[in-house]
Design a protein around this nucleic acid. Structure first.
Lengths: 198, 198
DNA sequence: TCCATACTTCGATACCCATCGAACCTGTGC
DNA sequence: GCACAGGTTCGATGGGTATCGAAGTATGGA
């Protein structure tokens, strides 16, 4: 289970049980132990409980152990989401899928957010980025609750900021919507977003 | 036992058993496993079998694991050797004790040795150092077998080079001998040796 | 309101594995 | 050559713990 979690993503107890060839009760038993030991962190979302490694130090330790012997490669958990929906889709009123995770990573890794527990806020440091999207600076700080992406198992932005972001990217034609939840990124959008990544 | 070995020194099965509060057979059982798993290395010397961590990667992994939780500090193994003999003493015809280990470390860390398994040789790179000791350069390469120091549990030089070194250091009055095996380092010796460390 | 799903808790079982005593092996020193 | 200390092997034992089925809890949707 730890090997499966080594990709940094979050998985449910049932998924990890399947990956480790054990039954859900057994998985739950061990996950609880590792949670209490501080090796894992828990993200509750509705009726789902997602487990992920508690931090980069745990990942480093695991990799350190693996480096001593080349252990058999972990059986990676495959997503049951259709590829095109995994790319980019709407999740109610905000962006989800690989695109949503990309945006979340870009913004958090630049330090444009503050957070108290699960409440995130976009700080004025993001003014330039938001300006390009036509979001006026006097709206800052915008609040947001990170939402664990169903297909990617990493976080994306929902809440006020998630809604603003989707509206802005649609009106600027960085992404195109359709009848389904699927979103398509335009070439212009690709370029602009790439410029903001690192 | 691994915690006790984390100081990088080598210990016998009985010592490690005492450190871990288990009986010698139990210690032997686990040490054998870890030896086969490649976590430990073995140094045979007479009727003694010294175990040490197989390499720096094992030490790093252990420290990585310890860093996740502040584990209780390992019970360090205390040497039964009198302090003055630990400092510096003769071992047959060469230098042992902390001084012997210091010299071994200084010379090996500078890359002045080549080795095939247990056979070491001092290379011409050490010419300056040896010259200062009055050892002519045409004697190079000098052979040496590293010997696990009884009080320090790290290696020192014995063999041809160990003998030459003791004779030279005595005649240059870097160290003074006596009736017992104890050696005393002179102030001049301290200065000269310190200059060669790192 | 009711069911389906995701997940955990509980209890019983079985198995693994650490542990130790006793016997055996092997170098050392007298 | 003998005694002795360091060390390992062997076999039996016991305890711990992983495991799973069944039952319970919580959440979301019809």
């Amino acid at each position: 289970m730890l090997l499966a979690l080594l990709d940094g993503k979050a998985y449910t107890a049932n998924e990890l049980a399947r990956a480790a060839d054990i039954t859900p009760p057994t998985a739950s038993f061990h996950l609880d132990k590792m949670l209490k030991a501080g090796l894992l962190a828990l993200v509750r979302q509705g009726r789902y409980r997602y487990f992920r490694l508690a931090g980069p130090d745990v990942a480093r330790t695991l990799e350190s152990i693996l480096s001593l012997q080349h252990a058999p490669l972990p059986r990676q958990i495959v997503s049951s989401c259709p590829p095109r929906l995994r790319e980019a889709r709407t999740c109610f009123d905000h962006i989800a899928g690989a695109l949503g995770v990309r945006i979340y990573r870009a913004i958090t890794s630049r330090g444009w957010t503050t957070h108290t527990d699960a409440q995130f806020a976009i700080t004025p440091a993001a003014t330039d980025f938001l300006g390009e999207l036509g979001i006026p600076r006097d709206m800052l700080p915008v609040k947001s609750t990170p939402c664990l992406d169903w297909s990617e198992r990493e976080f994306h932005f929902s809440g006020d900021f998630g809604r603003l972001l989707l509206q802005a990217m649609l009106s600027k034609r960085w992404v195109l919507g359709g009848k389904s939840r699927q979103l398509t990124m335009t070439e212009a959008g690709q370029r602009r977003l790439a410029a903001w990544e690192i």
